[in-house]
Each structure stands twice: as C-alpha cells, then as structure tokens.
Design a protein around this nucleic acid. Structure first.
Lengths: 315, 315
DNA sequence: ATCGATCATGCACCTATTGTGCACGGTTCT
DNA sequence: AGAACCGTGCACAATAGGTGCATGATCGAT
C-alpha cells in the first residue's frame, strides 16, 4: 500500500469516493475502514479550507467545489504519473512494487505469464495480481491499488474509452464461439451463423452483469433477437447448462472448455463475427514508465502468440 | 506548517535541497532539523525507488535523476496551485492560513497595511508575516513557508525574472535618492545628478549583499565609477555615517530618513534615474486564488497611494 | 600533519497522526 | 413501526515522523 504517495492519499480517497458515492464503498475499494475514510475526507476539507461534502439523506454527496476539485485532479495525477515515468526512464531506476489487475481468463492467459516473466527478469520487484472485473479494475486503478489492468473493452456507463484518467492499448480481439450440446443437430458442423441459432434457447449472463453487453451486441449486429432461456454467472456453469442440453451459449475463444462432456465449440461465420476486445489500461501519464512499457511488450507478445495459434481467417 | 500538503512534503524538501545544496541549509529553510531532512530524503528515495542523492565529499549532491525530478516538479507544483486556486474561486471558499514575506521597508509600507486590511476583512484568516531579503523570500516560497512575497526585483543569479516557479507582478518603482551631509555645498539644491557626485566618497552596502547591485547599476547607467569609502549593513547606519560627514549615499524613497540630523535627501535628475522595482511574487498557478487576488489588489492600492503622493515628474 | 569546523547520518526517544473496531443516531424503504 | 443501511464519534493501538545528541567522514587552515 506504499503506492499511494506523492499526491496526498486523501485526494485519491476523494476521487474514489467521487466514483462510488458512499463512504462504505470507498472504504471497501481503498482497503480502509469506513471510519478512516470519513476521517480522511474530514481532514482533507479542514486542510484545504474547502467544503467538499454535504449531507444527503443517509449518505453524503460531493459539493460543487468537490466535483470541481475531483475533475481538476485528473490532470494533476496524470502530471505526476508522467513525471514519475520520465524520471524512472531517465534514471534507469527500478520500482519495488507493481500491481496488476484483470478478469479471470485474462489473468490466466495473459497476466500469469506476465507476472512470471517479470518475476524472473526483475527479481527485486514484488508483483501483486488482483482478479477483478473490468469496472472494478478501473476503480482499482483510480484507487492506485493496481498499476496495470488487462480487461475487456466495453462502453461502460462510468468509464469511457477515452477517459482522461487512463490510457488504453489494444492487445487482441478474442472471438466469441458458440457452444452447443454434443447431440445437437448442428454439432457436427465446423462453423455456424447466429441466424441459424436464432430460435435456440440461449444461456447467458444475467442482464446488467459484466459481460452481458457482449451477448446483446453480438445479436444486435446481425439483427436477431435471441430467446434467453437461462442465466449463469460463471462460464463453467454456462458450459454445464449447455452440456445438460438446456440450450446453447456464447463462449470467448480464450475461455477454456476444459474437457467438458457433451459440449461442442463451433466458430461463428457470417457478417457479424462477434468478438470481445481485450485491452491493457494504465493510469494516464504512466504509460512511458519503463516497467509499464516492458509489461505491455510482454503482454503483446503473449497476445501475438495466441493470435498465431489461430487459423488465418480468424485473425 | 499545515501549508505543506497535497504534494508530498518530502518532494518540497527535495526542491529546497536542490536550491541550497546542503542538508543543514535545507533544514534551516524548511524549519526541520537536519536529521529530519536526511530521513525525509532517504524515505523519498525508498518510496520512489529512485536514487536521488550521491555522496559528494562531506556533503551530498543530487543525481541526474534527482535533478530531473526537481526540474519536472515545477510543473506539478504549478498544476496543483492552479487547481487549488480555481477550486477556491469556484467554491467561494476561505483558507485559514496565509504567509507573507518581504524586506524591511516593504514590510513596513506595503505588507503591514496588507496584513491589517486582511485581518479586518477576513477575521478567520491567520496571517503570518516574515521579514526576509528577496532571495530568501523566493526560498521561502519554494519551501511553502509563505504564499506571497513583496520584494525588490533583481536579476539574481539563482532566481530569474521568468523563473517557472513564480509569477511576479510589478507594484511600483521606488526611486533612489541621494543623501548628503547638511553642510555639504550641494545640500541646498533640490536635485543633483550622479555625475556631480562622482568624486564624493560613497557609503554603500557590502559588495555581494542584498541591495549592493542597485548601487552599482545606478552608476553603471551613467558611466561613472564611484569611490566606495565606507560600508554599512543597515540604512540607519548608512544615514548615520552620512550625518557624520563620512560621505554620501543612495537611499530609496521608501526608506524613511526619520528626523536624522545633518542629513539632506536630494532627488536625482539626469539621464539615469536610478530606481528599485518592487514586485509581488507568488508561486506559479496560485495567482488566480481569490485571496492572492485580493492581496494583490490591496498592495496595488497601497502602491498607488504612495505614487500619488509624489511629484508628477517622479512617477 | 594536526586540529577544528562543517556536514550528513544513525540511534534513542517522544509525539502526533492515522488507522481499527464498535456503538450510536439519523434516514429510507417496506 | 421495524429493519436495513449509512456515516460518524470515541477509545485504543500502531506507526509515521519529529527532535537532540553522538558519531564518522571530509575539508581547510594553521
């Protein structure tokens, strides 16, 4: 937790609060206790001589001044990250701690190799990996709990693609496959189109959950409205449902099917080739840091290796 | 000492160290003990994972990385000052502490009225005034011990007129007068030229001291090389020397002659009208802060009042 | 060459900041 | 009315961060 420095940690806490709106959630995200967050915010106001928060029902809310300060602090944070990165580069220095974040399949296939490589090339560096969904990864970046995140790009309602707080780099596009029961009439095919599966009962994530938008986007692209029969939270569960003959589903190429019985994975053809875009995100300004640069290189290498293992028409 | 905040105080300490070069001097300027400064710098290096200092003889010296960091931090500090000022303005907030610095005559004629006015208009604000020479005022600004300084502009070897760390505002030009013994042949005149006094024995500050450059600049402008007979540290002493008939001297209009016996003050005419320029200096970015703005207004008013009391040909 | 001056730093110690855990009061929803 | 939730105040504990003194290293002057 030594990462929170240089810029007063209380300001970082305020930024996290601005994101999640309650003291409790801020505490959870920053790793402090609620009382600590409360005390920090109070102290910050006292120190700056500004009223940043107002009572609002049973919670608290940012004042106009508070929102102004948070908005303006983006540039300040970026300035510092940039200076730090430049100094690290100029001085050929090494940092001691590096926090990584990512979702499960990314963690397995991209972050794990990255961590392993870094561990061998930089033995002094203590690498910490946190598994978290994309939205939380952004939160953790803001909270300075992690320094680099590998996530699925999504037009989140809270974090845009060009958010001034981050810089994002595309690593690879991960196509979505169809999984169907082994005894399904189409199971012997190599490829299918979504149109062919339009009338099937679909299994997906709950609406509003992390990757649900991938599902809807895929069908929107081809103008088909699927019938959602079942909902699952984990890929594993979804696979099991498909194996039990409850319906069909979409599964990203990177998500392993393991040796699931009774389930077949088919590539999707047709005009809409659904895919999820996997990107690396860092705090704005920090991208020129040598460690970040090296990490992005390693990630890109892993991504390229994955791409190289695919049939050409899939790239 | 709550003023040092937001940006890690250790970085401020590093900046002060970069200015004065030794741990001891940094300690004196910042108000810490030498051990504290040493510990801070050590901790800063550990935290950033950068080597900022190297042993150099019996002292320490900045590494290239250290210099880089210090240079880059100018923009960071300015960014924060700017954000803070904007937030104060946007939120119509008040700060609780305000540090002023200036040299003696400025303190008497400009800072004292300013402090008095602020005390009445903003009773909650605790104003602290520090008397210090211009170079030290800049140091104190960097060290964040003061927020505004009223000084004599000078082409210092360490702080230039367009230093990226400060913003300066001209308040007024304070002409230099000649003081001569009352029994001097020229004492009955209203005005003199420096050429007329070229052969007189001059009394001045010690070479290298704060305002000595004013003296040399005045004579350089008219191409005369004065004979320096005596040296004094304080204006009072200089006046006493003149009163004792030891020679003649230059005295800024703002410096009071009190009721010194045997001494006459004469205006200087001729092509070179020597003057010292009095300016207000603040940390870059902070100039748009409401409190700074109000202070500058008050100072300008005081300055205008002083100017208005002068004969027209002297403005 | 020696002695004193200067400078940075380590150590013992102390203080004050800043964290946690728990209890409490206010607010909203049912 | 009651339950759930949210923020905050308080006692207490840990730790960051300060001072003062002693020490070692280096430089300059005698």
């Amino acid at each position: 937790m030594h990462n929170r420095c240089m810029i007063d940690p209380r300001l970082i806490t305020l930024r996290v609060f601005a994101r999640c709106g309650t003291v409790g959630a801020t505490a959870e995200l920053t790793g402090y206790s609620p009382s600590a967050v409360s005390a920090q915010l109070r102290e910050l106001q006292r120190m700056l001589g500004m009223q940043l928060l107002t009572k609002d029902g049973r919670g608290v809310r940012l004042t106009a001044t508070g929102r102004f300060l948070v908005a303006g602090s983006d540039a300040l944070i970026a300035e510092w990250e940039s200076l730090r990165a430049a100094a690290m580069k100029a001085g050929d220095q090494v940092q001691s701690h590096f926090g990584l974040g990512g979702f499960s399949t990314a963690a397995a296939q991209l972050l794990a190799p990255l961590a392993a490589t870094l561990r061998s090339t930089r033995p002094l560096l203590e690498v910490q990996v946190l598994e978290a969904n994309p939205a939380r990864c952004f939160d953790l970046l803001v909270a300075e709990r992690i320094d680099l995140a590998v996530i699925v790009a999504m037009q989140s309602d809270t974090y845009g693609e060009d958010d001034p707080r981050f810089e994002q780099t595309v690593l690879l596009d991960d196509p979505l496959d169809v999984i169907i029961p082994a005894d399904h009439p189409l199971a012997s095919r190599e490829t299918v189109t979504l149109e062919e599966l339009a009338s099937e009962p679909w299994i997906t994530e709950a609406a509003g959950s992390t990757y649900h938008s991938l599902f809807t986007a895929a069908f929107t692209a081809v103008g088909v409205t699927p019938r959602i029969a079942h909902e699952a939270v984990e890929w594993e569960t979804q696979i099991a449902f498909v194996g039990a003959g409850l319906g069909v589903g979409l599964l990203p190429r990177l998500a392993p099917l393991h040796s699931a019985e009774n389930v077949v994975r088919l590539r999707i053809t047709g005009k809409g080739k659904p895919a999820r875009r996997i990107v690396a995100a860092v705090r704005r300004g920090s991208i020129s840091s040598p460690l970040i640069q090296e990490s992005l290189g390693i990630l890109q290498t892993s991504a390229n290796r994955i791409l190289a293992a695919r049939p050409e028409d899939d790239l």
